[in-house]
Nucleic acid binder design. Structure first.
Lengths: 235, 235
DNA sequence: TATCTGTCAATACACTGTATCGAACCATGC
DNA sequence: GCATGGTTCGATACAGTGTATTGACAGATA
């Protein structure tokens, strides 16, 4: 502040509601609130800071970079994911479904999932709970099994959310959406260049998101079961 | 241009190397070159335009939005993915490996894969080739099988690239990377709160990216095989 | 009390995607 | 041949981003 006026003339600084005691947790909570409400694009350091009634640069005392904020957000979601159940199959299935539920609560998580390696405390805790639940199976089979389920789930929920957004973007429900894309596909099919694709789209039953997810997951789990039943096949 | 000077005094407009005949294809090629070289963050409309020796707004004659440019880039990659082989298993496996190879050529594709529904011409052509290769199996089993493989591959390659980047970010190769993260994990393990996780990390064999991908893929394919062998089980 | 030092946040910067709008251009009507 | 009206095009402008810099302030030290 330039002191061109005598102190008496200058108004007092508007009393900030509070010096806003900050913490990583408060920052992350604010960021997640924004992301839940308006998507990941709504998360900017300025908006997060504003939500906390604080200047943007203040955040850099707690974060080195915006990337780190995203890392913290992802780790915060890990805390909501707790696998449970008895036996490897139940444990892995509950893990998959817990991840999917988390994505439904926090759609933005679908944009981040699998995007960077996770070593945060909640990620470690989740891994620990998972490994504890899987200690019945051969130690060399654990990683591949978890990795397969993880990859499948990450890809599946991403696709599911992408589709949901596309529907929402057109302001249509599922049925209208198919009707709207119909003409486009119709024209493509009319060229006669996609006969096999056309046949499948026309004749196959259409599964909803729940079924699609569950069937794919069952495939992965069945494949793991087969692998566990045939021990020692390294290749 | 303001005509304050007589025409003789004004220099001729610097002869643009060419009026730069533009096209979506040229734009997308330039964008992909940038992304291949420096990642997706390096793709801005300004940089793409500059690479084509053109003003930024010129692109809006060909694109409605930057999102559409990304869609075009994704569809361009689809052209490189052609499944082949005999029998559903070979076809799906070759699809998976073709996607993975494409991601290795264009790492940025890992950031986009699964992120939005694809209806571009190359995506349709790829689907057609896929469906044609799968016409041996029951029409109602095609979609779930393809979906499962697609989801797995999308998640797996994303994770693979994420890990690769993390390694590169530290300027280390695989071994150094593990050594560098060692102390951090060491400290976490030292707390004694992650015994099961510690055991797996310590005792399990470490697989490389190729093996991890192939094993997960085999799980998915085995699961599909089981499902195909037990026909008519709708649930 | 005067000076130094380290902390903190306002300002500044380079960059983004895109709306706007004035000028140049071209086809048309006289 | 010339004015004119519609189009096209691209420079400028704007609102936003992440973050480097810097100047002011507070607290500690001489």
């Amino acid at each position: 502040m330039v002191c061109a006026m005598l102190i008496w003339e200058r108004p007092e600084p508007p009393d900030r509601p509070t010096p806003a005691p900050l913490s990583r947790e408060r920052i992350v909570r604010a960021a997640i609130r924004l992301a839940d409400a308006d998507g990941l694009d709504a998360v900017s350091l300025r908006k997060v800071a504003a939500a906390l009634d604080v200047g943007p640069m203040r955040l850099y005392g707690y974060l080195g970079t915006k990337e780190e904020l995203l890392d913290l957000m992802v780790d915060a979601v890990q805390a909501e994911i707790r696998p449970a159940g008895d036996g490897w199959r139940e444990v892995l299935r509950s893990l998959a479904e817990a991840i999917r539920r988390a994505v439904h609560r926090h759609e933005w998580y679908a944009d981040l999932i699998g995007g960077r390696p996770q070593f945060g405390p909640n990620a470690l805790a989740r891994s620990e709970a998972l490994m504890a639940g899987l200690d019945g199976i051969d130690v060399d089979s654990v990683m591949p099994a978890v990795s397969a389920v993880d990859s499948y789930v990450a890809g599946a929920v991403r696709k599911e959310i992408a589709e949901r957004r596309a529907e929402r973007a057109t302001g249509m429900d599922k049925h209208q959406y198919q009707v709207a894309y119909g003409p486009y596909l119709e024209r493509a099919f009319a060229t006669g260049r996609f006969p096999a694709l056309e046949k499948v789209v026309r004749d196959a039953v259409h599964l909803d998101a729940d079924e699609t997810f569950r069937i794919g997951l069952d495939c992965v789990l069945d494949g793991i079961a087969a692998r566990l039943a045939a021990p020692g096949q390294p290749s």
